[in-house]
Design a protein around this nucleic acid. Structure first.
Lengths: 152, 152
DNA sequence: TGTAATTCCGACAGAAACGGTCGTATACTG
DNA sequence: CAGTATACGACCGTTTCTGTCGGAATTACA
């Protein structure tokens, strides 16, 4: 759980790829898909979605394709994920404006909202640019793996 | 996306409930389920899982039920979620030990591993106790809602 | 000893989400 | 007009999630 969908991954990869090729006025969905071995049609839909959200600019016809709508530094991972996976947020409760419908009780979400905020913050702090130059900040995270799995 | 499963929610709620009733030597799955309107059988399985992971102690028979295995301060949300939802972690890639199978390319996961770490850290910093006394630390997070939804 | 309460556990079913494909319409280039 | 692309909706198979059912083992208590 708590993992991104493949779509979101694909989206991030695609944007990263675009950021790495600023010389190209546009890259087609197929170009990017081939570069990573992603199903082309699926990626196409993802890029269309990102275009609708204003993160990309598209251009049909020959030599058409997609390009970043803004500087890679100005596009956050948060926006990409939000665009593709939709509004998410930790608690199953948090739907729309009204809290939990069933429970008068779901006091859980209050502290969890902070977690939410933190995650969103981290995601917002990471730009496509950071992904492209993938030796960004931070201490490598060698032992980020205490996912030793109690079970499953 | 990025949201907890209902099971994890239920699990957290249940532990919180147990933490709020330290006077009881044990509470049955049904007790907790009724308190929140959660399907009893489902909650039962969740509590069994938490028991297997060592977060709860169970006792069968009349007046049996579940109790926290440790002090509520010593049980983190991280452990609960890990127990119920299993090892998760951001990138779809990160499976087992080997990285992405398809892509020689998935350089994305490197920066995202940091995000992962951060999230895990936050989750670990929140104890069941924090949930129980739900006026814990932190600045309320009033405007934690910029989930205005670009789409969907 | 018997009965009720309760955990334990596996199997299964319905529903939703995910990942991916297909077909077609539309737009742009030359 | 022909070719290259995006745009978009419908559909499908698989997996995951949520929840239910049925039965077995355990314990308390009268």
């Amino acid at each position: 759980m708590l993992k991104l969908t493949k779509k979101a991954d694909y989206g991030l990869m695609a944007l990263k790829y675009l950021a790495e090729h600023p010389e190209m006025p546009a890259l087609s969905a197929k170009d990017v898909a081939d570069a990573y071995g992603i199903p082309a049609q699926l990626l196409a839909k993802i890029l269309q979605q990102l275009t609708k959200s204003g993160l990309l600019r598209s251009h049909a016809g020959m030599n058409g394709g997609y390009a970043l709508a803004r500087d890679a530094r100005e596009i956050s991972a948060f926006e990409v994920i939000l665009s593709i996976d939709g509004p998410f947020f930790i608690t199953s409760c948090t739907k729309g404006k009204t809290g939990c419908e069933l429970t008068p009780s779901c006091t859980i979400k209050e502290p969890l909202a902070r977690v939410n905020e933190t995650i969103a913050g981290v995601l917002k702090s990471i730009s496509i640019q950071d992904l492209a130059e993938h030796e960004s900040p931070a201490p490598r995270a060698k032992e980020s793996q205490q996912l030793v799995s109690l079970n499953r």
